[in-house]
């Protein structure tokens, strides 16, 4: 009863914020589920290419880009109709990608080929391919657009790409199986999660030096199973919310002290996440349980579970179309 009233209260409060949608790729259903951030229900499901994983929107939210890994393409979809507009050449097995701040260049990790492919979304041409380590996955780009990052899972590195020359200018070791990378605090820091190492490494972006290492400890879960994967930052970059994979928890990390403040129980094998517009709600994809957990950011509590397709993987927000 109490939970229900909390949900109702939250729903009332969120309806004041602008309405929006969370798009979730379902890796083993070849679909995306569209969740309303107001009603917290799936409002649409669209078909995609095979094994959709990474997902993101163009700056004006008029296009959604989807890594269809087993179709070896990045698909461009009209989010208002669900129609595939075209495929972009992506290299083999695209898993994750980022959109350069210029809104044109996609940096794509080609997991099977140890390559990062740069695609111009306007000309639909590959403009560069960069050799990186084995099984590239995590992708990030600095807010000023000067640096792109690829992390490689078996090589265990963050590769720093100069986006002007499209060449590597640094390679920094991290713990085993890096999965996700993000620039934070106006691009001054770059964070990388290591799934098997169980850590997040924080780099000073100006000199690529390691600045901090964050470890996790979930009560009752063997440290081997506490595996940081996707993470996103709360408003103002004050806190990081870190998906801890098969430990079924999301950690809340103070981004200034690098200390873990909280662990939130979510669905099974939590993987990636995104926020609603005002970052009051966080939506996590839970691969094994096939659902999305909604976390109330202020109270740091899971408030709802939403059933989606099989093996939900990526999540991306867009405002509702007007």
């Amino acid at each position: 009863m109490r939970i229900l009233s909390t949900v109702a209260a939250l729903l009332a409060s969120t309806s004041l914020a602008s309405a929006g949608e969370i798009w979730v790729t379902n890796e083993k259903d070849d679909t995306v589920s569209v969740i309303s951030t107001e009603t917290l229900e799936v409002i649409k499901t669209y078909e995609t290419g095979e094994r959709p994983r990474g997902i993101l929107f163009s700056k004006d939210f008029s296009r959604v880009y989807i890594c269809a890994s087993d179709s070896n393409a990045v698909q461009v979809m009209d989010p208002n109709t669900g129609k595939i507009l075209n495929d972009l050449p992506s290299g083999d097995d695209p898993e994750q990608f980022v959109l350069h701040p210029n809104d044109r260049h996609l940096y794509i990790a080609n997991e099977d080929d140890a390559i990062t492919t740069v695609v111009d979304t306007e000309s639909r041409k590959v403009i560069a391919q960069i050799d990186v380590g084995v099984e590239p996955e995590g992708m990030a780009v600095s807010p000023d657009g000067k640096i792109a990052i690829t992390t490689s899972e078996t090589t265990n590195m963050a590769h720093w790409i100069d986006t002007e020359t499209q060449k590597l200018f640094a390679n920094t070791l991290v713990d085993s199986r890096p999965r996700h990378a993000e620039f934070v605090k106006e691009g001054t820091e770059m964070w990388v999660s290591s799934e098997i190492g169980g850590t997040i490494t924080v780099f000073d972006a100006s000199n690529q030096a390691e600045k901090a290492k964050i470890s996790f400890e979930v009560q009752g879960v063997h440290p081997d199973r506490v595996q940081p994967v996707g993470f996103e930052f709360a408003a103002g970059d004050t806190h990081a919310f870190v998906a801890l994979g098969p430990s079924n928890h999301v950690a809340v990390v103070n981004a200034d002290t690098y200390e873990v403040e909280d662990y939130i129980l979510v669905g099974r094998r939590v993987w990636h996440m995104d926020f609603n517009e005002d970052r009051s709600l966080l939506f996590t994809t839970n691969g094994v349980s096939g659902d999305v957990t909604v976390i109330d950011v202020a109270s740091r509590k899971a408030i709802k579970t939403i059933k989606v397709g099989r093996f939900p993987w990526g999540a991306a927000y867009r405002p509702s179309p007007t």
Partner: peptide, 10 residues
């Protein structure tokens, strides 16, 4: 030492 061996644990 830890080896990532595609078995979900180091």
């Amino acid at each position: 030492f830890e080896l990532a061996g595609f078995k979900g644990r180091p």
